[in-house]
Design a binder for these strands. Sequence first.
DNA 1: AGAAACTGTTTCGATCAGCGCAACACTGAT
DNA 2: ATCAGTGTTGCGCTGATCGAAACAGTTTCT
Lengths: 254, 254
Amino acid sequence: MNDASAGVQSVDRALTILEVLARVGEAGVTEIAGELGVHKSTAFRLVATLESHRLVEQTTDRGRYRLGVGVLRLAGATTARLDLVQEARPVCRQLAADSGETVNIAVLSESSALYLDQVAGSSALQPHNWVGQHIPLHATSNGKVLLSGLDDKRVTEVLGTLSRYTPMTITTKAKLRAELEDVRERGYAVAVDELEEGLTAVAAPIRNAHGDVIASMSVSGPTFRLPDPRVEEVLPLLLTAAEEVSHRLGWGHR
Amino acid sequence: MNDASAGVQSVDRALTILEVLARVGEAGVTEIAGELGVHKSTAFRLVATLESHRLVEQTTDRGRYRLGVGVLRLAGATTARLDLVQEARPVCRQLAADSGETVNIAVLSESSALYLDQVAGSSALQPHNWVGQHIPLHATSNGKVLLSGLDDKRVTEVLGTLSRYTPMTITTKAKLRAELEDVRERGYAVAVDELEEGLTAVAAPIRNAHGDVIASMSVSGPTFRLPDPRVEEVLPLLLTAAEEVSHRLGWGHR
DNA sequence: AGAAACTGTTTCGATCAGCGCAACACTGAT
DNA sequence: ATCAGTGTTGCGCTGATCGAAACAGTTTCT
């Protein structure tokens, strides 16, 4: 049922209560006691202590308990320290090392993708630095991932005209919409020679605690170095990296 | 500094550690032990237990500790269960999309405004995550709206000294009272440069089935992007959004 | 280099905090 | 009125928890 390696049991039980409440939403003292395998009174005292720190509060009607605003307060302090770039950087470094290619982090910003961070791959020729640049959404893997997090209505709002950059660029909204559907289904996006000939990129979503797509992480490099089979190799690395960052930002189960 | 009525001391100390970390961001075992007035080893064991639940994590470089992702996971569960946030979130999203600015939900908590949720606007960088923070009531549009829902007697109880943050901050109770009267009449509140220079916000009340003001919804952004005429444009969007949430909470049907 | 002064971590025995028990107050249903 | 629930509280016993001291590393000073 529980991990044997606890530490301070009393604290361990209290924290387990928080997890139980997170799972079931609301619970009474008796129910909690049952879940922990301890006596009612024990559960009560633990809950009372949690309550004194406002981590739980009891509903007015019937003495049941739920998570309280103290949690949000802690979360506020957490996100202040755990911002996207700071959390993503070590993961990006690892991914860049493992794949040997350049890794980028981008967010949606005013109808384009804004590149927030970049970690160069191990290769000799350095790509140019995208950080701070606004890049069209429809012609990049990052852009497609970011768009895939929006509903159709917002996609329409955000998209202007789909400029052509190469013969491979997607320029019709219908085709783009179909592509976005694929991205949502597969959980990643690929762009080969769509923005620039000879440039291949693959991107995956980064989600926050609510499950919203708040950013995109990509691996990119010259097309000759990233042919289809190589992309297939890199993909699982990218996906686990993006998921790792999502988890750090609170994207838990359920 | 500490409340004498603790409950389970072991748990109380552990939770205090979380609060300390929320305040200072990062701390070592020794520092934490000093703050609690306990021995190093005690602090260590408590921290280790918190770590096993991922509520704190250890920075790689130097063995210091900070709040971890477990907090965010709990926060996600908390907002999911608070009916207010759950009902408000889609409306906030829409409002953020329509206005392009950041939308917040705040409630009254312990003589200050507690920010429960935030949806970032389409602008480039995330402004500042207010969620979980306690903000002074007299210097924010949200605060004024929340105060406007109280009668004069309760306003007096809740208000302490009105600290000055900028030259625009309202610092006399008489002036604030007059402002609150205006807010009640108009049904919204504005704050330009009152908490922070260059920050403009406009807020409207969210009411429950009884008509009480239970929360406040705001649109905020840099003053240069929200001059008077722009505020006038955003206002109707905000008012209908706030009313929509109020309706979802049961306000309106007799 | 070496020592001193810091870290965080581990071990261990004494002790007091925290546990289970049982009684309590209360609500709603039978 | 009785029962079956709830959350809450006082009280002794006991083992989980605490603090001291030793350990294993860094960084800093001499």
